[in-house]
Design a protein around this nucleic acid. Structure first.
Length: 558
RNA sequence: UGGGGCGUCGCCAAGCGGUAAGGCAUCGGCCUUUGGAGCCGACAUUCGUAGGUUCGAAUCCUACCGCCCCAGCCA
């Protein structure tokens, strides 16, 4: 499936109308992450929206770090965010900015508001401010410091900047309306004292602007036309507009809100993700089970799949939870057409072809991709002793199982038809080896007499197999709605989200799979080398399984 | 009991007064040297509920119900 290129949503409709009706000449958007964590798939939705609109309408999209809280922000996050946006396939060109680039301008505008009698320094403590704020149903009460003179406010604010006061001792507040039904208007904090080093400005500042005072003004400075954010900022829009209206800003940006992404079987909360990392429930921010872009990349998901997914889910204002199957579909769709096919046996059982000459190896030509003839083919060694998948044999098969069984003939992919003639078991009765005969006439995988077989099995020549570790990944959370109904999030963690297999058997060509490339292990799924992989000890991650009708039938029967 | 939003198929989502797109999932069938892929078909007489306006309503009006967000010196 190819997503419709000209998709439309309410934001694109607004942009199109603004362009058409001449309210703007060029659309300018921005992706404004706070560098306090790694980007996740929810951010990908926003990135695709903002950068997508810019390219579709011939405008531009800025990458701007909302770095106004030095106590939470780190250079590591700045770096990972830039790498992730690039990986996703977007380019901000020259337009890399930081809210911290505007600290001086923001300070001047704060002074402007003080001079206009629209901001004041408050000496109340954080707790007192909260008490004065009122409640959802009761108006707040003015701070006793609300009516200080402009001169005193100017003096105090300058001394706040100069570092004369300790953290938390004073704040600068906008003077709006303590009785407003919109709590954001009850004299919101514009600046707080934070004696902390900033990743970019170092110790140049000890007062930092709040989100509300920094964001809209940063948009105005950059000439952002459409400032797109998530629903929880709706209540802030009147305040956003208030600052723009009361300051001599160079442009008039507007804010629009859309519903953030929620996904079943996953959690998209920086707080929770940080906890999973810090407390060792995963291998790190880039654990293949994490919904972070770095985790998704390590898992082997292609960026194109994420972009297709973003296009598929659309953009709207209704809270929603997207089934993870939709993401998996988008990823499989890309992988199916782009990936090379290889053979690997995850849970091997020996198959010996009794009538095949001992000590002989022949090279069989196997196509690299049925979806792409241009992908060519490769030579794969074949011999008397092979590994096949344990699940591909049943001694006493049910009606619908049509793989190998005693007396049954099946095809070994691109090789020969083989018929199981004997089953060898160990002392405990466990099947340890299958004896077969092959039909030399069926070389390549089809019989000259035209007879058919119901199954095609993948295989690896035992003498040529490369041993590997394979890590099977599944949803990090077993429940579709982690932590719902009051459960502890951690209780919903899927105990089988990572299953590590040792001694998987790979066909030789797999040993040179480059890092970052995802391949298909035929009939099993998509896999990619993990960064832990070495030439002598390959490690593959399972990106996704293939859709599995047989597994579904079994599940239904059970 | 304040304010701001949202309610169209199991999930996402078009629709903007003219008689319910599409995708995911699911279920059939065909095809197949991956039980993959592909192809074909099925899948909302109904749009949170109840009234009203209209020749005609998911779209307009009224009331009600349900869900989400807001009381950080986080963003």
């Amino acid at each position: 499936m190819t997503p419709t290129p000209e998709r439309s949503d309410f934001i694109r409709d607004i942009v199109a109308a603004d362009l058409r009706e001449g309210r703007i000449d060029t659309v300018v958007t921005r992706f404004p992450p706070e560098p306090n964590g790694y980007l996740h798939i929810g951010h990908a939705k926003s990135i695709c929206l903002n950068f997508g609109i810019a390219t579709e309408f011939g405008g531009r999209c800025h990458l701007r770090f909302d770095d106004t809280n030095p106590v939470k922000e780190e250079q590591e996050y700045l770096d990972s965010i830039m790498a992730d946006v690039r990986w996703l396939g977007f380019d901000w060109g020259e337009h890399l900015y930081h809210a911290s680039d505007y600290f001086e301008q923001l300070y001047e505008w704060a002074v402007h508001l003080i001079e206009a009698g629209k901001a004041y320094v408050d000496d109340l403590s954080a707790e007192e401010i909260r008490e004065h704020r009122g409640t959802l149903t009761e108006p707040g009460t003015p701070s006793p410091w609300r009516d200080r003179s402009v001169e005193e406010n100017l003096d105090l604010f300058a001394r706040m900047r100069a570092g004369e006061f300790p953290n938390g001792s004073r704040v600068l507040r906008a003077k709006i309306d303590m009785a407003s039904p919109n709590i954001n208007f009850r004299d919101p904090v514009m600046y707080r004292i934070l004696h902390a080093d900033h990743p970019r400005t170092g110790d140049a500042w000890c007062i930092y602007p709040s989100y509300d005072f920094a964001h809209g003004q940063s948009d105005a400075i950059e000439g952002i036309t459409h400032s797109i954010c998530t629903l929880e900022f709706q209540d802030h829009r009147p305040l956003y507009d208030w600052f723009i209206a009361n300051l001599p800003v160079p442009s008039q940006p507007h804010q629009y809100e859309f519903a953030r992404l929620n996904l079943t079987h996953t959690v998209l909360s920086k707080r929770v993700l940080l906890k999973l990392v810090k407390e060792g429930f995963v291998r790190g921010w880039d654990d293949p089970r994490m919904p972070t872009l770095s985790g998704i990349r390590r898992r082997g998901f292609p960026a194109e799949g994420l972009r297709d997914f973003a296009a598929m889910i659309g953009v709207a204002r209704a809270d929603s939870v997207v089934e993870i199957e939709m993401l998996e579909h988008a990823v499989r769709d890309v992988l199916n057409r782009t990936t090379l096919r290889r053979m690997a046996v995850l849970d091997p059982i020996k198959l010996v072809i009794e009538n095949y000459p001992e000590g002989v190896t022949e090279e069989l030509e196997v196509p690299n991709s049925p979806e792409d003839p241009d992908a060519g083919s490769r030579m794969v060694p074949f011999s008397r002793d092979l590994w096949i998948e344990r699940d591909d044999f049943m001694e006493d098969p049910p009606k619908k199982f049509f793989r190998l069984a005693p007396g049954r003939e099946v095809r070994l992919r691109s090789a020969y038809f083989v018929t199981c003639t004997d089953v060898i078991k160990d002392a405990e009765g466990r099947v340890v080896e299958l004896r077969c005969t092959y039909d030399p006439e069926s070389r390549g995988g089809s019989a000259p007499d035209g007879r058919k077989v119901k199954a095609t099995l993948h295989w690896v020549s035992a003498a040529h197999a490369v041993d590997a570790e394979v890590r099977l990944y599944d949803h990090l959370f077993a429940d579709p709605f982690p932590g719902s109904d009051g459960r502890d999030l951690l209780d919903d963690l899927n105990p089988d989200s990572e299953v590590i297999l040792q001694g998987a058997k790979l066909e030789p060509a797999l040993a040179d799979t480059p890092a970052g490339e995802t391949v298909q292990f035929e009939r099993l799924g998509y896999f990619c080398p993990d960064p832990d992989s070495t030439p002598t000890a390959p490690v593959f991650n399972r990106t996704l399984t293939l859709k599995d009708t047989w597994a579904r039938l079994q599940a239904k029967g059970a």
